[in-house]
Nucleic acid binder design. Structure first.
Length: 431
RNA sequence: GAGAUUAUAGCUCAGUUGGUUAGAGCGUCAGUUUGUGGCACUGAAGGCCGGGGGUUCGAGACCCCUUAAUCUCCCCA
């Protein structure tokens, strides 16, 4: 699918320098990075230093002497590092997709894993909002094909920045977003409380309340938000971007599950423009996809002015959702095509020869691992979802023949060894 | 990082206010049935009751510690 949209595959190492990862995911994120203990700490010559360093670790610091590598926390930052390192060789805009596990030192629980797979797609080196449109299209198409009903929520960090500008200054943005992001869970009143705790005055809280009460269709929301934020340069810009994307999607696709959500904040520090989140409807599960635009991601790695935008699929959670919705067909499990019964030494040898022919013809088959009663061999075939049994008993052995039995219909037929091709076509016949 | 719950047979779980030999269903194995499965019946095997300590005449059960899992909050995919 990603290839269809012009993306190339890429893989990056599971390990990164701790320094590369720290500070990119917010304070909470930093705590959740899996750190790797350095080797060689037992070296006597370095033990004094190691002990001193460890005392610092106990104070909550990350000291290179103890740990300088870590497992990747997501796929975006390692990708940014890769782009920064290889910028000379890449053609921009560079589009890649990546399916790999990531690790978070979290307490595992429902829908939350210490190790889980992400499937990312990013574009670096383009400011065009067409990329956003493309990603929304990818999300919508992918989940439609998986038959999972979702809501694709979108917001723009610029609106949040504008809101902060009007409510006490840009430095308040993190505080404000952390609070309003919780509205779904704790409700408006609690959010207002939290905002006050975080140092906002009555007037500012009131303003945010108005912002949070924006509702209706995407167009209506846009209009209401514009009344509040269009006075600021950033607010105006953010609203324009959202408007463009919404209109484009509406005009050129049949996607109907794109919704504006002005409370959507998303934790990752580096987002600057559009932010996305995908939630399955009718299933209680956190977001199963997320992403956004970061106008200067590689700047942190010494390559300024490279904008990017990307999305991520939470593979394990999507799997969980599909399982909960019973979207996996029951007959996925399929064993070999044929089980040859083992009815003694000579018969087994004959069966073995037969199997060579079957395999050459592309029929998967196996022989029961030991001589056993019919009963047992039949039950084995059933459990392994094997469709055919081949039986060579004493009679067949002397006749140079074998019995082919279809285990689901119970119909069986005797073939001469020379007529093996007929048997094969019987096996391959779609049932 | 904060909190709750759970841990008993291969699996899912019972086990009463502490009391003799710790049970069931499923699965496994054997038999009814020595060359034709799915069903049924009969029987058998299978347990350091997560680990360590304590209370008690007596602990699967009560207390403390420990480990692990599950779940909630925080945060996130």
């Amino acid at each position: 699918m990603f290839v269809l949209y012009g993306f190339q595959p890429l893989e990056t190492p599971a390990m990164e320098n701790l320094e590369t990862l720290m500070g990119k995911y917010g304070d909470e994120g930093d705590k959740l990075i899996f750190k790797i203990l350095n080797n060689g700490l037992e070296n006597p010559a370095k033990q004094q230093k190691a002990k001193e360093d460890f005392l610092q670790v106990l104070e909550g610091k990350n000291i290179k002497g103890i740990t300088e590598r870590a497992l990747r926390y997501d796929l975006t930052i390692p990708f940014a590092r890769y782009v920064a390192m290889n910028q000379g060789q890449l053609t921009f805009p560079f589009k890649r997709y990546q399916v790999q596990p990531v690790w978070r030192a979290d307490r595992p629980q429902k829908g939350r894993y210490r190790e889980f797979w992400q499937c990312d797609a990013d574009v670096v080196g383009s400011l065009s909002l067409l990329n956003e449109v493309d990603f929304i299209n990818i999300y919508a198409t992918a989940f439609r094909e998986l038959k999972v009903d979702v809501e694709i929520r979108i917001n723009n960090r610029k609106l949040l920045a504008a809101l902060a500008e009007l409510c006490g200054g840009v430095h308040k943005m993190i505080d404000i977003t952390i609070a309003i992001d919780k509205i779904d869970k704790i409700g408006l009143e609690k959010v207002k409380e939290e905002l006050k705790q975080r140092g906002l005055n009555e007037e500012e809280v009131y303003f945010i309340e108005k912002y949070l009460s924006v509702a209706g269709t995407n167009e209506e929301k846009l209009e209401q938000a514009s009344a509040l934020l269009a006075d600021t340069e950033t607010g105006k810009k953010g609203l324009e971007e959202l408007g463009y994307i919404n209109e484009f999607i509406k005009k050129n696709t049949n996607i109907s599950n794109l919704v504006f959500d002005f409370t959507l904040a998303r934790g990752l520090n580096y987002y600057t423009g559009s932010i996305f989140e995908v939630k399955a409807t009718n299933v209680s599960m956190g977001s199963i996809g997320g992403g956004g635009r970061y106008d200067d991601l590689t700047g942190l790695f010494g390559v300024p002015n490279l904008p990017g935008v990307g999305i991520s699929f939470g593979v394990d959670r999507i799997f969980d959702v599909m399982e909960e919705l019973k979207l996996f067909p029951g007959n996925l499990e399929k064993g070999s095509d044929v089980l040859c019964f083992n009815l003694g030494k000579d018969a087994a040898e004959e069966a073995f020869k037969l199997m060579q022919h079957l395999r050459t013809a592309g029929v998967s088959c196996e022989i029961f691992h030991e001589e056993a009663k019919f009963d047992k061999q039949f039950k084995y075939a059933e459990k392994k979802h094997i469709t055919f049994a081949i039986i060579i008993g004493a009679n067949e052995l002397t006749e140079g023949a074998f019995i082919l039995k279809n285990l689901s219909t119970g119909v069986q037929q005797t073939f001469a060894n020379s007529a093996i091709m007929e048997a094969i076509s019987e096996i391959k016949k779609p049932s």
